[in-house]
Design a protein around this nucleic acid. Structure first.
Length: 564
RNA sequence: GGCCCCAUCGUCUAGUCAGGUCCAGGACGCCAGGUUUUCAUCCUGGAAACCGGGGUUCGAAUCCCCGUGGGGUCACCA
């Protein structure tokens, strides 16, 4: 008896509001969302904030924002407005959707378990348990809770609870209870009796543990299908045992393959810390190179692989070292200038294979609308997938290339406004479109775009003439680049309409009249105007710099490079 | 270490469930050419994989077993 048989499909994404939405979570949300859409069901969002120390409202907002930005809308859950779209709400009356607001429901269910003897209070302190765990490891044994609390008389337990003694509540796992689950991705997975110990349902602070809350909420909210990462596979027997104790139907389970990093391990939020830590170590830095971090915090972070610095501090250190931190969270990718539709396309490919084109060809590029039509659990693979950043970048570059100049300019402008307003201001609205055309085939992500037109944003006297370029392009040749430059300056000075097309036409005509190849004209101009031999098309390059500046830069180049 | 999962080019994968049409197809990357005023884009071509060993079968990338490798998980985190 499955929760899913014959009814409306209900899936959920249940993030804990600690930090940003990371890419693995985004994929989980995406698949649950797409599956609900495909089945004509509903997708709900639940906030798992039972860890009082780590949860924050700011994080919840960030996660909702990230989901909305990716185009993953939820039918039920916390309410959210993004432009003219609004998500969330509680049409079926199964809320609230924050676990911290559902404490009464957990209480009811724990009371039931306590009454039927399926759960019991236990009084060991965290320290005691920790010691027992360490001792077991030292003996090379698997630690399992020893049920000490179960050995005392029930009246004694009750009395101690009444007396207000701190305690947890544990599930009493029936002896000899093996669990077998038909997983929709992996097939039949079974766990032998004795593998699951009496795990904690209610913490000392009265909050439910993840295991307890997830089972109660999924049942109460009518969740029919649970699509989650394979790291949860080992949790499944706990959840099934709990469902049995509570008399709940079992949802359909589908455990998705993991997303790996370059090192072949699960991609995690700690990735950026690791990258920064390694760089700091190999640079031999012992105390923080940036302000605001005490030696104590910095030293602790350096020594302890599990510690994380806050993201601003991390960015600052990376900036100081000229280090690129690997993007891990959706916010990282957004600020790096990846398109949301590219991210969802790419992460969908990690584990899911789209159906082929009508002509039998493989399909790789698709939008959310297609995913909602095509996604199925039967299209999920079993093996873990490495997150190939190079391929992602290539997808993003393709998406940029698909845009026409105006559309790209608009997207780029919006990104600049949010993440690089200084460049936007320096460039100005009228140069944005020309800049966009120049930059479009030269950047894979939006954050690379500014560098490609950096020459246009600097002061005329700040241009540094590359020595090699000067030697090769200006000094040598017959005629020399410098002399060509001097002549073409005069021609350019007479150009009325300073616009890429006419500039290029004028230069072309000049080259032809002199019997020179275009390279003989373009390269000296490039060096004079940008300092180097590499830049966008000549017309765009000169148009971006502007007539007055071009002439000024040529004059300065003539002066500076003639002497040298 | 216990338990559990996985295994096709460097990477993501198609093919595996219904064994032959697969001397294994696509994409990213790589290499070589071409277009071009530089770079980039773009175009063409190329190298590149069924983890190993046993079975089953006329026939196995596909089915079974063992081994090896990788991963996940063993919290009063989720």
């Amino acid at each position: 008896m499955h929760a899913g048989s014959g009814k409306e499909v209900i899936t959920r994404f249940a993030p804990s509001p600690s930090g940003h939405l990371h890419i693995g979570g985004a994929r989980t949300a995406l698949f649950n969302w797409a599956f609900a859409r495909r089945m004509g069901g509903r997708f709900l969002l639940r906030i798992e904030d039972t860890d009082q120390a780590r949860s924050s409202e700011a994080s919840e907002r960030a996660i909702l924002h990230d989901l909305a930005w990716l185009g993953i809308g939820w039918d039920e859950g916390p309410e959210w407005r993004a432009g003219d779209a609004s998500f969330g709400g509680d049409p079926r009356g199964v809320g609230p959707f924050r676990q911290s607001e559902r404490l009464g429901m957990y209480r009811e269910h724990i009371d039931r378990l306590l009454e039927q003897g399926s759960a019991y209070a236990a009084f060991e302190s965290p320290e005691e348990l920790d010691a027992a765990r360490k001792a077991a490891i030292a003996r090379k044994e698997t630690y399992r809770y020893d049920r000490a609390a179960l050995e005392m008389p029930a009246e004694e337990r009750a009395a101690r609870v009444r007396a207000g003694e701190p305690h947890v509540v544990r599930l009493r796992v029936p002896e000899g209870a093996g669990v077998s689950v038909r997983d929709e991705v992996l097939g039949e997975v079974s766990f032998k009796p004795g593998e699951v110990d009496d795990f904690v349902l209610v913490k000392r602070d009265g909050y439910p543990t993840y295991h307890f809350a997830v089972v109660v909420d999924d049942a109460l909210m009518g969740v029919t299908h649970v699509l989650r990462g394979q790291e949860h596979l080992a949790n499944t027997p706990r959840h099934v045992l709990l469902q049995q104790a509570l008399g709940f139907a079992m949802p359909v389970y589908a455990h998705m393959p993991l997303i790996f990093n370059d090192k072949g391990a699960k991609m995690s939020k700690r990735e950026r810390d690791q990258t920064a830590r390694e760089a700091v170590k190999s640079a031999g830095i012992a105390s923080s190179p940036v302000g605001g971090i005490s030696d104590e915090v910095f030293g602790g972070w350096l020594a302890d692989k599990t510690r994380q610095l806050d993201s601003e501090a991390l960015e600052a250190i990376a900036g100081h070292l000229g280090l690129h931190l690997p993007e891990v969270s959706v916010e990282d990718f957004r600020s790096a200038g990846y398109f949301p539709e590219v991210i969802t396309n790419f992460i969908a490919l990690l584990g899911y294979t789209p159906s082929k084109h009508k002509d039998g060809g493989d399909r790789e590029k698709f939008d959310l609308e297609f995913l909602c039509r095509d996604f199925g659990i039967d299209r999920l693979g079993k093996s873990n997938a490495r997150f190939d950043r190079v391929k992602l970048a290539s997808f993003n570059a393709d998406a940029i290339g698909q845009l026409d100049d105006a559309a790209f300019a608009e997207r780029w402008g919006a990104w600049l406004a949010a993440y690089d307003p200084a460049t936007l201001e320096a460039l100005g609205a009228e140069r944005l479109v020309v800049g966009a055309r120049a930059v479009k085939p030269r950047c894979k992500v939006l954050s690379e775009a500014s560098a490609a037109i950096g020459f246009a944003l600097m002061r005329d006297d700040a241009v540094e003439f590359d020595e090699k370029a000067v030697g090769k392009v200006l000094a040598k040749g017959e005629p020399t680049g410098l002399s060509v430059l001097e002549e073409v300056r005069g021609v350019l000075a007479g150009v009325e309409s300073w616009e890429a097309g006419s500039i290029e036409a004028v230069c072309g005509a000049f080259a032809e009249s002199k019997g020179l190849g275009m390279g003989k004209v373009a390269q000296p101009l490039r060096v004079a105007v940008t300092g180097g031999t590499v830049s966008p098309g000549l017309g765009d390059t000169l148009a971006l710099v502007g007539k007055a500046s071009v002439l000024a830069r040529i004059d300065r180049c003539l002066r500076v490079c003639r002497v040298g």
